[in-house]
Design a protein around this nucleic acid. Structure first.
Lengths: 135, 135
DNA sequence: CTAAAGTTTACAATCATTGGAAGGTCAAGG
DNA sequence: CCTTGACCTTCCAATGATTGTAAACTTTAG
């Protein structure tokens, strides 16, 4: 009926965030407490869903809950300096970069080891030898 | 004195794994229960430390505790086929690869957004606009 | 009226690691 | 002998994001 009055399941569907997580974000204070029906069901409107989608998109970019809290504040603040948003995002890029480099280092060492291993029925294995190495 | 009888702090120092984690690994069954002094202190020998270093090196390559359990079993099994080690490692490489691609996708989208943002005192911000976008 | 599906809360599990508290032990030095 | 500090012991809790479960209630459709 009224497309602007949703329960938590519909809000979850519309935002891409599970009902479970919507409740969790509320309990953590990331989103304000939803209003309730007489019987206690949470209800959401178009604006709420819009905020949830903002959160979803931010999560998809790897921002932490705390960072998303900051992003939401900036989003709401009509007088924000865009420099604050930019520096927050830049910091996050650096964190992503650190992680990418960590994982890439693991991958390349492991790839090297794997390429040395025959991978047959015999027990000799350069991978295990390397792991067991005292270096 | 006897360099082959270490308490947990010395074993931690020698292996690079914190005392806290050594106890944790023992309680999880990753490493067998350490023998104890009369007063209850855990004691470790050269072989134990060697195993701990194996674990440390495996963790540094990003293997999960469960995977390390499997690697330890293979390490101990003199009749292992090296193919088992290789496939375990290969699976892990694929997982690393997935994560790297995920993070890289985040990074490149975010980098694009950041490059669009003036980052000055004005509130206009393509980063927030994108996050708030309904797409 | 009833059954199914959705909602509520609260608590637990995941994964690896760290922190803290409360108490026991060991070595060095006065 | 006694104290001090540095170690060790166990147990419980927190981190971060998410999922699962259980018991009880509400809504919806037949």
């Amino acid at each position: 009926m009224n497309a602007d009055i949703l329960n938590i399941g519909q809000a979850a569907e519309a935002s891409g965030i599970s009902a479970k997580m919507i409740r969790h974000y509320e309990s953590e204070g990331l989103v304000p407490p939803a209003s309730r029906t007489f019987s206690g069901y949470r209800i959401y409107n178009h604006r709420d869903v819009h905020m949830l989608r903002f959160i979803k998109h931010s999560r998809d970019l790897g921002f932490s809950i705390k960072q998303i809290g900051d992003l939401l504040s900036l989003w709401r603040d009509q007088n924000r300096p865009s420099s604050k948003v930019k520096s927050l995002a830049t910091e996050h890029i650096q964190m992503l970069d650190r992680k990418i480099h960590e994982l890439s280092a693991m991958k390349s060492e492991l790839t090297r080891l794997v390429s040395c291993c025959h991978g047959d029925t015999r027990p000799d294995c350069p991978i295990l030898d390397n792991l067991a190495q005292d270096n």
